[in-house]
Amino acid sequence: MNKIKPLETDIAAFIRLERNSLFRYACYKTGNYEDAEDILQNVFLKLYSDPQKLLSIDNPHKYLYRSVSNECISYYRKKQDISFTEIEDAGNICEEQETDFMEEIARINRILSIIPEDQAEVIRLRTICEKSFTEIAEILEVPVTTIKSRFKYGIDKVRSEFFKPESNHKK
């Protein structure tokens, strides 16, 4: 049996555990299923093609989410027009009519677009990636109290849009 360095094994195990969550995260960041795939492949390939890098990671949680986030931002810049079009086009889709994952991404992204990005990012990591507030604080490198405030204000803003009496959004 091949001997595996403990650190490499830890990171590989961590990737296995987090892979679905990272993929969902990339999907929601880009609004695009296929681009998310490419982004994830790029991040993993970069990671595994640089053994020194692999050994120098002390917090794989933070490293992976930030890598995916950064990769999404550069990808997003390149394909901004496409992503915006898809999100806007899907704007009128209500929950009952969702037939697949892409439509759900579009619906949630449309809602998140009404709040500041720093609040949307916390909500994304909490509801889409299922991270705890402590983990989110670690990934974004801000205090947990700030994370909770961003979450609260973001949710409050969406709530006020969706629960005001004249709202057309509410189911």
Partner: peptide
């Protein structure tokens, strides 16, 4: 309850579990 409903609106119901690699079904 309103916050919970809001969070629920923002929580994906599709592909919440194990699916990662998308399949290339004929429909898709």
């Amino acid at each position: 309850e309103e916050c919970k409903e809001t969070v629920d609106l923002l929580t994906p119901k599709k592909m919440t579990g194990k699916i990662l690699i998308p399949d290339e079904s004929p429909q898709r």
